[in-house]
Structure formats: structure tokens, C-alpha cells
Write a protein that binds this DNA or RNA. Structure first.
Lengths: 123, 123
DNA sequence: CAGATAGTTTAGTTATTACTAAACTATCTC
DNA sequence: GAGATAGTTTAGTAATAACTAAACTATCTG
């Protein structure tokens, strides 16, 4: 299978390259990806994720409320190699993992349960 | 020297890929390149040539009234390989050469010499 | 120099793209 | 079901990129 033009168009965007870089070696949730680029809205990130998905450059997996994405380097062919060169060594990967561990936007369910309101549904 | 992001942006355009393809194995004049893509104006082609030049993907050479361009595959790194795969084998190259030979926009100097006006420049 | 060819550059138009804000779907917990 | 989190989708906006027409530079011929 040959690489398609859409692949070239997908990697032309710095934003999409940043996303690819984030999920290159391990999957991340959409929220975690957004955390790493706070200069744009969550919606903007989601749109780029869809674009990358359609280009076949990402895989997605849903788990509970989360949706995890990861890159498919094999779909990038020789371009994947080029991106890796651009990104330098594995430095970024370690630094990133630490930052994400710290700023993790966990599920955070309410723990402040106190009053038991229960279902007050009217008939 | 690592490949730069501008390279990725340059090859993202179908028009620029078409130009690269034309001058991949041998140089062509700007006019000959335009002949191969008559759906756009000469000016449009020239602009894309400048873009490719600035990205370092082309070399240019001037000879008399002509300006010849050719690709620098080494500047494309692994992406060059990918483009070649996209373009298939060397078929296109042969077909193209024939077409260009036929539709060549040669210098076509006037041969209808008759009156000898000579230089009438005033001092 | 005039007239033709070869090519570049500029100004303005149109289509596309990345984005935001907000509405929407879905899941989880109580 | 209510209320919270997680994510997607839509409608509209702003910046960009590709293009056209035309003005411009340059070279060659006579």
C-alpha cells in the first residue's frame, strides 16, 4: 500500500504534527492531548484528531468516558522517519510523560457526598 | 542537516507536487512547466516555483531568456522516496518527455528578416 | 530602438482552513 | 434523573493560500 496525498496534507500542519508527536509512542486521551496545548480549545483539538483519523494516521479506542488516541507510524511511511528526526531523540517523550503525570485531568468524580438527595423525580 | 517543516508544507500542495514531478529527473524551463499545466496561468506557476525555491526544493539556472528549474531530491530526504512511490515507476518520465518534445514552446526567433534597419540609436 | 518572447511581481478575489463559542451526546456517580 | 466530567459537532469568523489579470523586467532579433 502506497502512502496517499492526504498523508502529506495531514502532516503539513504544525498543530497536527504536535498531536502526532504526543501520541507517537503511547496513547493519550483527547483531554490529555488538549492539556498539552492549552492555547486552543478542546473543540479545536478534537477537530484535528478527526482529521488525523480520517487520514489514517491515528487509532482511537474508547474506554468509559475517555477516548484514547495513538499514532500509526506505519501509515506515515518514510515521513514518520522524517518526523522522528525533526523531533530529535527520545528526550521529549520522558519530559512529556512527567508533565502529563502532573497535570493529569483525571476523571475526578464527586467525593463530597454528604446529603443523600436520592432521586427526586416527580411522577 | 535535518529536514525542515517548510519542506512538509511545500509538498502538501498538489500543484507543487506536480511541478516537482516534472523537474524531478531533468530540468525544464518555466514555460515548459507551464505548458504541462495549462489550467493555470504562467504567473501562478511562477509563484509556486518561487515557493519551492524558498523551501530549498528546487535549483534554478538562467540561460538567455529562459530560466531552467530542477528538483533537489536530496533536500526532500525520505519524502522524496515517498513521492517516487506515489508516482509509480519511471513511466511518467518517458511519457512526459515525449509530450514536452511535441508541445515545446521554443524560443521561436523571427526568421522573416527582410528590411535591414540596423541600430538607429541616437547619441 | 521597436517588437517579440520569457519570466517575475503586484494587487485584488475567492476558496479553504483553523479556530472559537456553544450546543450536543455519552458516561459515570449518587 | 441530577449533576458532573469527557468528548464531538455545528455555525460562524478570521487568517491564509491559490489563483487571475495585468503591469513590469529582461533578453533577443532586426
Amino acid at each position: 500500500m502506497n502512502p496517499a496525498p492526504e498523508v502529506l496534507e495531514a502532516v503539513a500542519s504544525p498543530r497536527r504534527r504536535a498531536i502526532l508527536r504526543l501520541v507517537w509512542k503511547h496513547e493519550l486521551s483527547a483531554g490529555a492531548i488538549h492539556q498539552a496545548m492549552p492555547d486552543v480549545t478542546f473543540g479545536a483539538v478534537s477537530l484535528q484528531l478527526q482529521t488525523l483519523l480520517e487520514a489514517g494516521l491515528l487509532e482511537a479506542r474508547t474506554e468509559s468516558r475517555f477516548r484514547y488516541y495513538r499514532a500509526k507510524p506505519e501509515a506515515l511511511g518514510p515521513v514518520g522517519q522524517m518526523l522522528e528526526e525533526m523531533w530529535g531523540d527520545a528526550l521529549w517523550d520522558l519530559k512529556l510523560a512527567a508533565e502529563l503525570e502532573d497535570s493529569r485531568r483525571g476523571p475526578r468524580p464527586r467525593r463530597k457526598s454528604k446529603a443523600k438527595v436520592s432521586k427526586a423525580k416527580g411522577g
